[in-house]
Amino acid sequence: MKTKILLLFSFICILACKSPEPRKPVVKNSGSFIRESVNRNKKLIEKEENQILSIIEKDTAQTYHASSNGFWYTYHKKNNQDTLQAHFGDEVIFEYNISTLDGTPIYTTKEIGTRSYVIDKENVFNGLRQGLKLMKEGETATFLFPSYNAFGYYGDNNRIGTNVPIKTTITLKDIKPQHIN
């Protein structure tokens, strides 16, 4: 009997020394939500870019440039004398308006007023930030921004709704370079 108990005790000890096995997940994630979201966003971007390209095609009086940041712009007043453009930390003084792509005003220049902005150190929408970096003092340009370069999914929680592409005309009045001591 003692041998049977000893044998049983040895057997239990051997089983108890087995390393634990990881549990398998109860729910498997197929990734379909992510794929559907990516496809929706691709379709949205394509639709907005087609709208913008249609506007550009119809506006034969202006020459539009495609930026590497995913928006288009045209100059109304160009400064060919200066070479100074705004960079990180420079302060710029400017005026701008915001409208829908068809030109319906959302915010007028009078409502917004003259703005001061320190490049890449303050919070403005991405398209405005990148557009100001392309401009020289005294220039006026119109930018066509897809929603992902404007106010995106959330809008501005006021007059600009979800995924609204916008048109904005900016006049860069002054660039005050950052002084590094």
Rank of each mutant, 00 (worst) to 15 (best):
K4A: 15
K4R: 14
F9H: 03
S10P: 02
C17G: 15
K18W: 07
K18H: 10
S19M: 09
S19G: 11
P20E: 06
E21T: 14
R23V: 15
P25F: 04
V27G: 05
V27S: 07
V27T: 13
K28D: 01
K28E: 11
G31N: 01
I34M: 14
I34Q: 14
R35P: 11
V38K: 07
I45D: 15
E48Y: 10
I56H: 04
E57C: 04
T60P: 04
A61Q: 00
Q62E: 03
Y64E: 06
Y64P: 01
Y64Q: 02
S67E: 09
S68V: 05
S68Y: 01
F71E: 06
Y73C: 08
T74I: 07
T74F: 09
Y75W: 14
Y75R: 02
K78R: 15
K78A: 02
K78L: 04
D82L: 06
D82G: 00
Q85N: 13
A86D: 02
A86E: 03
H87S: 12
G89S: 12
D90S: 12
D90N: 12
E91G: 00
P105S: 10
Y107I: 07
Y107F: 04
T108M: 14
K110T: 07
G113V: 03
K121I: 05
N123L: 01
N126S: 02
L128R: 01
E139I: 00
E139S: 00
T142N: 03
F143C: 04
Y153I: 01
Y153V: 05
D156H: 06
I160M: 14
N163D: 15
V164Q: 15
P165I: 06
K167L: 10
T169D: 11
T171P: 07
